[in-house]
C-alpha cells in the first residue's frame, strides 16, 4: 500500500532539501485547496507533501522600496485585508479573492493558484498584467522569473526538480495607473472562469495611455500576455476606437477549447467583451490615482 509522507519545514532551505532528496513524487502544498482535492480524486499521485505554510517568508507581505514582496502562501483573505496592496494593485487582489468560498479564501494562495497550472486560474492574469515576477528557490540558489513564464502547459510549470516558488514581487506604480481583473462564470461565485481578463495601464498627464499589459485566462492552454491588446491601447486616449481594437485583439488571441464550461465561439467573443469591460474599470482607477 502506498504511503504519503508529510513534512512542514520552517525554512526555504529545508524545503529545497526535502524536494531534492524525496523518493517518488514530492508536491509543494500551500493552502492545499487544489492539491488535496486532486489527490483525493486520484487525479494526482504523490509520495511526499511539503507544506510551506509555516515558513514566514512565504506568509509575509512586505513593502519594499520599489514595490511589494508577497509570500507565495499568503492567503486570499490576508491579501484582501492588506490596504497598501489593495490600493496599488486592486486587480491582482480581486483576482485572488474571486477564488472559492469564504472558507477557501482562508487557505487559497497566489503561489498555489499559479503553480497548479490551470489555464483558468483567477489569480494569474492580474499578476501577468501587473508585470509581477516570481522568486524561485532551488538547489542552485534563487532566480527571478516573470509570472507568464511559469506555466508551460495545463498542470505543468517551468520549475525544475528541487525548485519551488517563494514569493512574488509587484513593482511600485507610476501615477495615473490602474488595473482590473474580470472573469466570466455562469454563476455569481464558487465557479471556474470561462474567460478571465487582467488589464493594467498607465496614463500620462493628458490622459493618453503610455503603458499597458493585458492578459487573458481560460482561452488558451496557458494564461496569455497579449501584446496586440496592449498595442491597441498604448498611444491612445482609450476612446471607443481603441476599445474596439482591443476587443478584437483579445478575441483573435484566443485559442480555446470546447468543453463543459464553454464553447470556442463563446470564449472567443466573451474575451473581447471582458477585455473592454476590464479596461474601462482599469481606466477609471488610473484616472483617480
Amino acid at each position: 500500500m502506498a504511503n504519503l509522507d508529510y513534512s512542514s519545514p520552517s525554512s526555504v532551505k529545508e524545503v529545497v532539501k526535502i524536494l531534492t532528496t524525496a523518493k517518488g513524487k514530492a508536491k509543494v502544498m500551500a493552502g492545499g485547496t487544489d492539491l488535496l482535492v486532486q489527490l483525493r480524486a486520484g487525479r494526482l499521485k504523490a509520495s511526499t507533501i511539503v507544506d510551506v505554510k509555516n515558513i514566514s517568508e512565504l506568509r509575509t507581505i512586505k513593502k519594499e522600496k520599489n514595490g511589494f514582496t508577497i509570500g507565495a502562501a499568503v492567503s486570499g483573505a490576508e491579501l484582501g485585508a492588506h490596504k497598501a496592496v489593495n490600493k496599488a494593485w486592486p486587480g491582482v487582489v480581486e483576482g485572488l479573492e474571486l477564488i472559492g468560498s469564504t472558507q477557501i479564501q482562508g487557505r487559497a494562495s497566489l503561489g498555489g493558484n499559479l503553480c497548479n497550472g490551470s489555464p483558468a486560474a483567477d489569480g494569474v492574469p492580474g499578476m501577468i498584467a501587473a508585470g509581477a515576477t516570481c522568486l524561485i528557490a532551488g538547489p542552485k540558489g534563487t532566480r527571478t522569473v516573470p509570472v507568464e513564464k511559469i506555466v508551460v502547459s495545463p498542470g505543468r510549470t517551468s520549475l525544475k526538480s528541487g525548485e519551488f516558488l517563494v514569493s512574488f514581487f509587484l513593482p511600485n506604480r507610476p501615477k495615473k495607473s490602474g488595473d482590473a481583473y474580470l472573469r466570466f462564470i455562469p454563476r455569481t461565485e464558487m465557479d471556474i472562469a470561462v474567460v478571465g481578463v487582467g488589464v493594467s495601464l498607465t496614463l500620462d498627464k493628458k490622459g493618453m495611455c503610455t503603458d499597458a499589459r493585458v492578459s487573458l485566462g481560460a482561452v488558451a492552454p496557458t494564461a496569455l500576455l497579449v501584446k496586440n491588446c496592449a498595442n491597441a491601447l498604448i498611444g491612445t486616449n482609450i476612446d471607443e476606437d481603441a476599445l474596439n481594437a482591443l476587443s478584437e485583439a483579445a478575441s483573435s488571441a484566443c485559442n480555446p477549447i470546447d468543453d463543459k464550461r464553454g464553447t470556442i465561439k463563446y470564449r472567443t467573443k466573451v474575451a473581447g467583451v471582458l477585455a473592454r469591460r476590464a479596461t474601462v474599470i482599469a481606466l477609471k482607477r488610473a484616472r483617480k490615482n
Binding site: P186, R187, T188, E189, M190, D191, I192, D259, K260, R261
Partner: peptide, 16 residues
Amino acid sequence: LQNTGFLDYRVPVASD
C-alpha cells in the same frame, strides 16, 4: 459523464 461534481454540475449558489 463530463461534469461529475458540483463545480460543473451547476446548481444555483445562494448568491445567485
